[in-house]
């Protein structure tokens, strides 16, 4: 640990964007809970599929104002895969508002935001693998960095100069977004075309489980996004997070027990709570799903290691 501040280390908790297509009422209930939680920051927006339409940009903005009024910092995220002019129109609408910071989902967003000379958050799908790349983005106006999912914590610490280069956030809890496609795998599974998908992804509140042929849970299909079946969980890795200069932890929404997840991280990361007990409690929330932390420790992402 490099300094008293780091040793004392507190972590801001961020509620990442909801990756799934939840009915509007469920979404509102979810954020009503988040509003009362220990999370400091909430990232809002549809980041996966433009066809999901229950929430328009104006609805996200209204929700953002409500959460802001409850004392939360709100960041608006742009879609991860931009394919069409209509995708770009939504992106510009988000970039042009000036009430909230914008988290760039791709280089299209970076172009719009840097042309407007607006500060921005580097989303987890912007590839920053080294110090020089981060410096370039900081010069352009990046004010916060969410590290790519596959980057080991040791590397995160090199890229951000131990935390001094930029406020650094890592993906600390949730099914991991691993890949994006133009193709919808949920629709494919249901033998539907993408343009007539019947919004079947709404039936899978936490994605649709894909297992290997010998029964090992492997991935989760979430429309055009492919996630890990396992849940990344870095609650046991506090020392390594501090050493890597990480100051913010992203918790990715799940349909059940998520408020308990937030408070478990608050308890361990900011209140010196016992990580072993908290880990057991988190595992109990999703007993049939593996918790993993391999990426953080420079191993395959599907691995778990008890060594912090």
């Amino acid at each position: 640990m490099t300094s008293d501040a780091a040793a004392a280390g507190t972590f801001e908790l961020t509620v990442g964007p909801v990756q799934y297509y939840w009915p509007r009422a469920d979404l509102m209930d979810f954020y009503a809970g988040v509003a009362e939680s220990s999370a400091a920051t909430v990232v809002l927006g549809e980041v996966v599929c433009a066809r999901r339409h229950e929430m328009k940009t104006a609805d996200w903005l209204a929700l953002a104002r409500d959460l802001h009024a409850c004392g939360k910092e709100v960041v608006l995220a742009t879609q991860t895969l931009i394919e069409s002019e209509s995708d770009l129109r939504v992106l510009r609408r988000i970039a042009e508002q000036s009430e909230f910071w914008v988290e760039a989902g791709d280089a299209s967003a970076l172009n719009v935001l840097t042309e407007m000379k607006r500060p921005f958050v580097l989303g987890p799908h912007i590839n920053v693998y080294n110090r020089e790349a981060l410096r370039q983005y900081l010069r352009m106006g990046a004010c916060r960095w969410i590290a790519p999912i596959e980057l080991p914590l040791a590397t995160v610490g090199i890229v951000n100069d131990g935390g001094s280069a930029a406020a650094t956030e890592v993906f600390a809890y949730g099914r991991m977004p691993l890949a994006m496609s133009a193709r919808c795998f949920t629709a494919r599974h249901h033998r539907l075309s993408k343009d007539a998908c019947e919004f079947r992804c709404r039936d899978d509140a936490d994605g649709l489980l894909l297992s290997t042929s010998d029964g090992r849970p492997f991935l989760a299909l979430n429309g055009v996004q492919t996630q890990s079946a396992a849940i990344q969980c870095l609650i046991s890795n506090r020392a390594a997070l501090v050493a890597a200069g990480v100051s913010r932890l992203r918790l990715s929404p799940a349909s059940t027990g998520f408020l308990e997840v937030i408070e478990a991280f608050q308890h361990v990361m900011n209140r010196a709570g016992d990580a072993t007990e908290a880990l057991a409690a988190l595992q109990a929330l999703t007993p049939s799903i593996d918790l993993v932390n391999g990426f953080a420790l420079a191993r395959p992402g599907i691995d778990w290691s008890a060594a912090g």
Binding site: P148, E150, M176, A179, G301
Partner: peptide
């Protein structure tokens, strides 16, 4: 998958295109 944004291989093996 969109190239340059796929971590499936590193999820399974630790090594990816990126």
């Amino acid at each position: 998958m969109v190239e340059g944004r796929c971590a499936l291989s590193s999820f399974a093996t630790g090594q990816s295109p990126n």
